[in-house]
């Protein structure tokens, strides 16, 4: 491994995150008025520790997998890396621009057309309109949406939405790509295309963090896999020695 590959781009140290389930606490005004004392009791019961003392590092160009069953804290971890939520304790250091590719068509508005959503999504991912328009044709071409790009997203099939989401996220020139179960959708042809594109990105030094509960899928693409259970790190396994030589 070269020195460049050793550079740490994501550094997570002793991370703790507790959720307060607000909806469980205050559901309506009636409840506030009628059950005021119960509110305090609920406040204590509604705290839920999602992540407990999580530490790990991801190096530049690495494909890092986070595995765990539903509710293990995978998505919370991604949200913390993406910076949309703050940790209670511990630190997260991220170097470079992140492009989150979370869930199906996240960040798209169903009433806007594919074109409008590309622009809006690109902006939310931190690109200026000029930068988006420079890549616009490429994004549309990769998504294989053709004339559907002028139609509102709500008429798209789930596969079409996933294709567009993937296409925008990988064309934002990210340093770090966060991927949440996204390859589970789309037809075999598009999945292959996604894998090829990711290979290309990895070769150009893009770091990737995958989240999935499917071990088979993870093993085929990840260099290292971290398993979490009930918010704690169980293991971090080395799957592949050299990122550059690995094939998906």
């Amino acid at each position: 491994m070269t020195g460049e590959q050793q550079e740490v781009v994501i550094e997570v140290k002793n991370l703790w995150k507790t959720y307060v389930l607000y909806h469980h606490i205050v559901t309506s005004f009636k409840e506030v008025v009628l059950h005021f004392p119960r509110l305090f009791r609920k406040l204590r019961q509604s705290r839920f520790e999602v992540l407990k003392d999580v530490s790990f590092e991801v190096k530049k160009g690495e494909v890092f997998g986070i595995m765990g069953h539903n509710g293990a804290g995978k998505s919370t971890l991604l949200a913390l890396i993406a910076g949309v939520i703050k940790p209670d304790k511990g630190t997260i250091k991220v170097r470079g621009r992140i492009s989150p590719l979370l869930e199906l068509g996240a960040g798209f508005h169903p009433e806007l057309t594919g074109r409008e959503n590309i622009i809006l999504n690109g902006l939310l991912l931190g690109m200026t309109k000029k930068e988006i328009m420079e890549r616009f044709e490429e994004i549309v071409e990769f998504s294989e949406l053709g004339h559907f790009i002028e139609e509102p997203i709500r008429i798209y099939s789930s596969g079409m939405v996933a294709r567009l989401g993937f296409s925008v996220a990988v064309h934002t020139n990210p340093d770090i790509l966060l991927v949440d179960e996204v390859l589970a959708v789309g037809d075999a042809h598009f999945q292959q295309k996604c894998l090829r594109k990711m290979q290309e990105l990895r070769d150009s030094g893009v770091t990737m963090v995958f989240v999935s509960h499917s071990r088979a899928q993870m093993e085929s693409i990840c260099d290292r896999i971290m398993t979490i259970d009930h918010g704690r790190v169980v293991s971090i396994e080395q799957i592949r020695k050299n990122a550059k030589k690995a094939t998906a």
Partner: peptide, 9 residues
């Protein structure tokens, strides 16, 4: 909500 949950801006 869907924009806020996924991206930081």
């Amino acid at each position: 909500g869907n924009l806020i949950k996924k991206t930081k801006f």
